[in-house]
Design a protein around this nucleic acid. Structure first.
Length: 414
RNA sequence: GCGGUCGUGGCGAAGGGGUUAACGCAUCGGACUGUGACUCCGACAUUCGCGGGUUCAAUUCCCGUCGAUCGCCCCA
């Protein structure tokens, strides 16, 4: 057996790549309208950036990173998510010195060493946006709405957004204490996963699939927020309502990355097996400072492109898979062959997509080939046409055929 | 890191110890000797992920390994 691709990676072949390009074009156009500009950061960064940014205690950092030592003995890590690198670039390039809010977007591969399953890969792709420098709730809702609009314009149905406020690190600590007070008495009755979760991230326990019924009456994080956080969250909700953006408050929503403060949200949809989150994000007011930048706030989201593709497929959304070509040239005989080589190149230089046969197949097989390429026209050149300086042009949709002057072939293709 | 299922041609898929490895799609050739999307005919796996074991005999049974897939944890 020859080489195989690494576990959890994918080859995106022609026929599939077109679907990705289509989605990427939609994302870019949307970002243009919302005035977000693209940023491209390295695929790997110093390991410490992710340890500090994403959080030392998270699963992502503890067990999922692709970390290696480079030849200069520096510890480097393939980026497991997009935000940390963008935050680093924002600080390092002093974008905070620019007069306006920095509104950025990115698309690209991320890497996490995990066991693959439906909608989960070791190399996966995210489209994300980040907005730095503002604590106006209007920017929170802009980001949330941008993501939802993306799904909407792609033609997806039943994508919902859940929002929550996780407050500040202080109020979250207070909440965790209150929650533990509620959970401790029942600790022995909880599943073993939950017993672990109690230590690592108590809020996760409330997400448990096995003992949901035990948690009625559990304290809500929303009751632990300070006045300012509560007011902020209220403004976010008010804006969303005014914009007629449907949302659902999920007071149990927790995100797996440590840097979130205040607004947190997830985009949800069915259609990828056991997984229902296709994107998520939130506000991170301390992250820029945490990685050594100035005390600037930020907010953003990341959307999983593989998951998006899976949902597009499960909802049978029409996404172009083939880009039709303009014309397929068929030559019969040596003289025609020579002329065809010339015409093919000429048409291409004039801006047409053109193809021909290189396998010495019969005319019939070449016509089938033209059909597969979804050629608008097939142009057939034989000795009789050639002797009159013409070529036979067939419109593949109607089957109509006419002889046109070779010199005017391009004009007939418009 | 843990668990379930699966691994047969380019693709889908039957076969479950014995020597011709079904069938469908696609492809190529022909009927139509210069024309696609219909029909019919023909061709197309010295071989069943890889390594080892059991056996007179293994694609079929056993072990290992790699891979795929689904789920848990966690996440996009």
């Amino acid at each position: 057996m020859a080489f195989q691709k690494p576990t959890g990676t994918q080859d995106f072949l022609p026929g599939t790549v077109e679907k990705w390009q289509y989605v990427e074009e939609k994302a870019r156009d949307l970002c243009r309208r919302f005035n977000y500009r693209e940023i491209r950061t390295p695929m790997f960064e110093q390991t410490e950036l992710f340890q500090r940014g994403v959080g030392e205690t998270t699963d992502v950092v503890q067990k999922e990173m692709y970390t290696f030592e480079d030849k200069g003995h520096r510890s480097m890590t393939l980026r497991p998510e997009g935000t940390a690198g963008v935050v680093r670039a924002y600080a390092e390039n002093k974008l905070y010195g620019e007069p306006d809010v920095s509104k950025l977007y990115y698309m690209g591969p991320m890497f996490r060493y995990e066991r693959p399953q439906a909608g989960r890969y070791r190399q996966f792709h995210q489209f994300g946006v980040e907005a730095f420098g503002s604590v106006d709730p209007a920017i929170d809702v802009e980001v949330i709405a941008l993501g939802l609009q993306f799904f909407k314009e792609l033609g997806l149905k039943d994508v919902s957004v859940e929002i929550n406020s996780v407050g500040t690190s202080e109020t979250r600590a207070a909440y965790n204490e209150a929650l533990l007070g509620f959970l401790r008495p029942m600790k022995d009755t909880l599943c073993k996963d939950c017993q672990h979760r109690m230590e690592r991230n108590p809020m996760r326990v409330l997400d448990c699939k096995v003992d949901q019924d035990k948690f009625v009456g559990a304290p809500s994080i929303l009751d632990s927020l300070d006045e300012e956080s509560t007011a902020y969250f209220q403004q976010v909700k008010d804006h969303l309502t005014a914009m007629e953006v449907p949302y659902r408050v999920n007071e149990r929503l927790v995100r797996g990355l440590d840097y979130y403060t205040h607004t947190a949200f997830e985009y949800k949809a069915q259609g990828i097996g056991a997984i229902d989150t296709i994107g998520g994000g939130g506000r991170y007011n301390k992250l820029v400072a945490e990685v050594g930048g100035p005390d600037q706030p930020g907010i953003g989201f990341g959307i999983g492109m593989e998951r998006l593709q899976l949902i597009l497929a499960s909802q049978e959304v029409e996404v172009p898979a083939v880009k039709p070509i303009d014309v397929y040239l068929v030559a019969i005989g040596e003289a025609a062959e020579k002329e065809t080589v010339k015409q093919l190149f000429k048409l291409r230089t004039l801006g047409f997509s053109a193809e021909r046969d290189y396998l010495g197949r019969k005319i019939k097989a070449q016509m089938k080939s033209a059909d597969r390429f979804q050629a608008r026209y097939t142009a057939i050149l034989g000795d009789d046409e050639l002797s009159r300086g013409e070529i036979s042009l067939k419109a593949m949709d109607t089957g109509e055929q006419q002889n046109v002057k070779l010199a005017q072939l391009a004009d007939h293709l418009k």
